[in-house]
């Protein structure tokens, strides 16, 4: 398998807090990597440090052979690293279709020049509609994002990522707060992406789903990697069980 992204000795400190402390990580093309860990382990911080929301304190992020660490989020998006947010960030006043169209313009936002380029061309709308179909959002196409339920918003996050034709998809808890039925829908969607050989990094608290979807799982605790491997191996790792369920009483 070809290597798509390599993270070397990544550090993200906030004052004295070492949210990410010397993390190494490799993502191969067409692979689904799961990241699990207790609350506060640094999972979302890791996403933010990779995607340019934060400037890492140290370390390297190498994407397709190029060092990209420290570049702003919008540059990362244009390079093909697309992410969703743990707390949905819809463009509330816009329709679902326009939300997806906005993301489809990922390479169009060139400052003053973008004034002279029309946004809603037939090609862009067709592309957005295809993604809406794929993510099961066609039925709410013309509804305002503020008027649809959380299940739709979660899928809207994924739709906005897909429409940018990303090389790496980073999903931050796509099932958080959803009903079992909605969780199944999102899981199906991720499996569909996986079939299409997309490279995915998934943060998810729902362990059965993570085990089912991922080829490889990395366990984070206090900003450090404590285990990594195929789902079956990680499931039985002693350190992982401790981190998740707490240490056994020694007395």
């Amino acid at each position: 398998m070809n290597e798509l992204m390599r993270v070397e000795d990544l550090k993200m400190y906030f004052g004295g807090l070492k949210a990410i402390d010397g993390l190494d990580l490799v993502i191969n093309e067409g692979e689904t990597l799961g990241i699990i860990g207790p609350n506060g382990a640094g999972k979302t911080t890791l996403f933010n440090a990779i995607c340019g929301v934060y400037k890492p304190t140290g370390g390297k992020v190498i994407f397709k052979g190029q060092e990209v660490q420290g570049q702003p989020a919008y540059v990362m998006a244009r390079k093909g690293i697309a992410r969703t947010f743990q707390i949905s960030k819809p463009l509330a006043d816009l329709t679902i279709l326009d939300n997806v169209v906005a993301a489809a313009g990922v390479h169009e936002y060139t400052g003053m020049r973008s004034y002279f380029r029309k946004s809603h061309t037939p090609e862009v709308i067709a592309k957005a509609e295809a993604v809406l179909e794929e993510t099961g959002l066609t039925e709410v196409r013309d509804k305002k994002a503020s008027d649809v339920s959380l299940g739709y918003l979660r899928r809207l996050e994924i739709a906005r990522v897909l429409v940018t034709d990303p090389e790496l998809i980073m999903l931050d808890e796509p099932c958080a707060g959803l009903s079992n039925f909605a969780i199944n829908e999102v899981t199906e969607l991720i499996l569909k992406l996986k079939e299409r050989k997309k490279s995915i990094v998934l943060i998810e608290h729902n362990l059965p789903i993570t085990m089912k979807v991922c080829d490889r799982i990395m366990v984070l605790s206090y900003g450090k990697k404590i285990a990594e491997g195929p789902p079956e191996v990680v499931k039985h790792d002693k350190q992982v069980i401790e981190a998740y369920l707490g240490e056994e009483d020694e007395a």
Binding site: C51, P72, Y74, A82, K89, A103, G105
Partner: peptide
């Protein structure tokens, strides 16, 4: 933040 995430 969403705007930045798709290239703005």
């Amino acid at each position: 933040a969403a705007a930045r995430s798709f290239g703005i």
